[in-house]
């Protein structure tokens, strides 16, 4: 059974076991932060925790890698 997380207040469905990054991609959200200097959009690139492009803040915590972090019911995600 799917559950939901919220992305900037909007509900996004999650299949149990999916990472935050996979859930965002599935919902058509492919970038969720911008770079420090050029303000370039970034999302998943390596998909396995190596590149740190996919950093995202969950439940107000310091940024984590969306491609590694398994989504949990009620997670609140904010994009930049």
């Amino acid at each position: 059974m799917t559950f939901h997380i919220t992305v900037d207040g909007r509900p996004v469905p999650v299949v149990p076991g999916q990472t935050i990054g996979a859930a965002l991609h599935a919902a058509g959200v492919r970038s969720w932060r911008t770079t420090r200097f050029g303000g370039r959009p970034r999302g998943l690139f390596c998909g396995i925790g190596v590149c740190f492009d996919c950093l995202i803040s969950v439940n107000g915590r310091a940024p984590e890698r969306a491609c590694l972090l398994e989504a949990e019911p009620g997670d609140e995600v904010t994009t930049a």
Binding site: V15, G17, G21, A22, H25, L44, F45, C46, G47, I48
Partner: peptide, 14 residues
């Protein structure tokens, strides 16, 4: 990356 696309699919079905 090719591995990233594969990981999305294999790990998350996306």
């Amino acid at each position: 990356t090719a591995g990233g696309a594969q990981a999305l699919l294999k790990g998350g079905g996306v």
